[in-house]
């Protein structure tokens, strides 16, 4: 093409094109400069603030994953190891046994094991937990509040916009640094 004499319109077009490209590069550069100046190298992930969580049950159904990335986790050090665990048992259990009809958890994801009289330990089977927060509600309302919901980062796909966060009635979701990706409950202050 170069050996052909360039027509007037071709040079005009080339001039416009070059001008547009320079302008676009300048714009991109400025934009990038502003953003890089503000940005941090660390990446961010979504997490639930357990102090804001209202235990509504959205986490079980609104996640984009087939099985929600939100699971119940247990701060064992806060747990009273109660025999009558209000996170484990239905409000009016027939008996304090592991029979399914007594359990609050719809999938039987909480494993109750005897430790010593009168203490029982409760562990979450994450494969079964659907993040419905029924146990969290029971434990927080009547117990120590040692059960709470967290996004499990081995499951979360880190959506740009978290689908649960959008519908969270407690506004409990926020982005946290990926280096400290959990907002855990710890033992009581004193």
């Amino acid at each position: 093409m170069s050996d052909k004499p360039k027509s007037e319109s071709s040079t005009r077009r080339t001039f416009l094109r070059n001008g547009a490209r320079v302008a676009a590069m300048t714009g991109l550069g400025a934009l990038g400069g502003v953003l890089v100046n503000r940005s941090q190298a660390e990446s961010w992930v979504w997490q639930i603030d357990p102090q804001k969580c209202l235990r509504c049950g959205n986490c079980a159904t609104k996640c984009v994953l087939e099985q929600s990335a939100v699971k119940c986790v247990h701060a064992f050090a806060m747990c009273g190891y109660c025999n009558l665990c209000t996170g484990y048992f239905e409000p009016e259990p027939n008996a304090l046994s592991t029979a399914a009809e007594n359990q609050l958890c719809p999938t039987g994801a909480i494993k109750r094991t005897f430790v010593e009289d009168p203490y029982y330990e409760y562990k979450i089977d994450e494969k079964l937990c659907i993040g419905c927060a029924k146990c969290v509600e029971g434990c927080n309302r009547f117990g120590n509040g040692s059960l709470f919901l967290q996004i499990r980062h081995d499951r979360c796909v880190h959506c740009n916009e978290c689908a649960i966060a959008r519908t969270c009635p407690g506004d409990a979701f926020r982005r946290v640094p990926a280096k400290q990706p959990y907002l855990l409950k710890t033992t009581h202050a004193h």
């Binding site: 990446s43 992930v45 986790v73 247990h74 701060a75 064992f76 050090a77 806060m78 747990c79 009273g80 190891y81 109660c82 430790v115 010593e116 009289d117 203490y119 330990e121 562990k123 117990g143 120590n144 499990r152 980062h153 081995d154 979360c156 880190h158 990926a178 990706p181 959990y182 855990l184 033992t187």
Partner: peptide, 22 residues
Amino acid sequence: FPPPDFTETNHQIPTTTTPSAR
């Protein structure tokens, strides 16, 4: 309900697992 100290069985209280982010 104060957390028990398990004097009889010396039961070790488990820690909460935190699978790390990417």
